[in-house]
């Protein structure tokens, strides 16, 4: 390593040590903001993962009449409907779910909620065709064409249920991102202030450096590096925190909720570089801004 890098790195570490309390404050503040940022990024990952999985599985439900709302569907009408559905290009698969099947699915889904099960009997839930589409966005093609068929009571896009879930998670994710952004700005201001204090503490030294002809970056780099190191440590700590907690939490949820895939270690690993980039980036920018006027020629 050449003499100039030895100097820059040595000075940066001297600065960090001399200003230990401020350094700790900077690291903590970066840690908190980046942990939030990482958590919201991981939440996005989770939502994307669940959405991908669900859109593959969601179906269009075509509920059949059973004399309560409209005259019960005849077996000829039902056969016709199935044939026409299967003839559609956008349709991937058609299942028939009888009243009996629907009742069984409901009771297994709400097995631990007896009051719900007691409220219905085998005749309550309508029979339906459950249609899986090649492209779930083409729901309208089916709805337009089959809602007027005789014996069809209602056509429901199951994605609506998913959309409600997505709207909720979007709100949570946006809120987390906003808080993370505010925290990140606060961390940046704290870093700028710390670097300013460090530069002021060494103004005698930098004054001499200026007069003997040290170049601008040579004077500033130790201070910028000081900020970047603090940012880097904060980013590493937040990555470690996410690494230690997120796979555990997701694993626990995965045991309770079997319907949904969950993120794991791979996603936490993947978010790390972004945290490091954000931590060092915000530190570098705020350090440089802090020094811009302070250490001018």
């Amino acid at each position: 390593m050449t003499a100039r890098w030895t100097y820059v790195i040595r000075e940066a570490f001297i600065g960090l040590r001399r200003n230990l309390m401020m350094t700790v404050a900077v690291i903590l503040s970066v840690t908190v903001s980046l942990t939030l940022l990482g958590a919201s990024l991981l939440l996005s990952e989770q939502v994307d993962l669940a959405t991908d999985d669900w859109t593959g599985r969601v179906e269009v439900s075509i509920y059949l009449c059973d004399d309560r709302v409209c005259p019960a569907i005849t077996s000829e009408q039902q056969e016709q409907l199935r044939e026409d559905l299967e003839a559609q290009e956008v349709v991937a698969e058609v299942f028939y779910e009888s009243k009996q099947d629907a009742f069984e699915r409901f009771t297994s889904m709400f097995a631990d909620q007896e009051s719900l099960i007691e409220a219905i009997d085998q005749d309550t839930l309508p029979a339906s065709f459950r249609v899986r589409l090649e492209n779930p966005n083409l729901f309208n093609v089916i709805a337009d064409q089959f809602s007027t068929y005789p014996g069809v009571e209602e056509i429901v896009d199951q994605r609506e249920v998913l959309n409600q879930f997505l709207r909720f998670t979007n709100v949570v994710r946006t809120a987390a991102l906003v808080v993370a952004a505010i925290q990140l700005v606060a961390a940046g201001v704290l870093i700028a202030n710390t670097i300013r204090v460090a530069a002021f503490a060494r103004r005698e030294q930098t004054g001499i450096m200026r007069l003997v002809g040290a170049s601008n970056w040579y004077i500033r780099l130790p201070f910028v590096l000081e900020g970047v190191l603090a940012g880097l440590i904060g980013a590493l700590v937040s990555w470690g925190l996410l690494w230690a907690t997120v796979p555990q939490v997701a694993g626990g949820l995965a045991q309770d909720i079997e319907l949904m895939p969950f993120i794991g270690e791979a996603q936490v690993l993947a978010v790390g570089p972004w945290l490091l980039l954000a931590g060092t980036g915000i530190a570098a920018v705020s350090s440089i801004l802090a020094l811009r006027r302070f250490l001018d020629i």
Binding site: A3, V212, Y218
Partner: peptide, 29 residues
Amino acid sequence: GYVFQDFKLLANKTVYENVAFALEVIGRP
């Protein structure tokens, strides 16, 4: 070269280091 009335030596460096500092910070080998 600039000589000040109040010397402006760095208190935490030795005589040798103070003089070497002027070369170090302009990147001399």
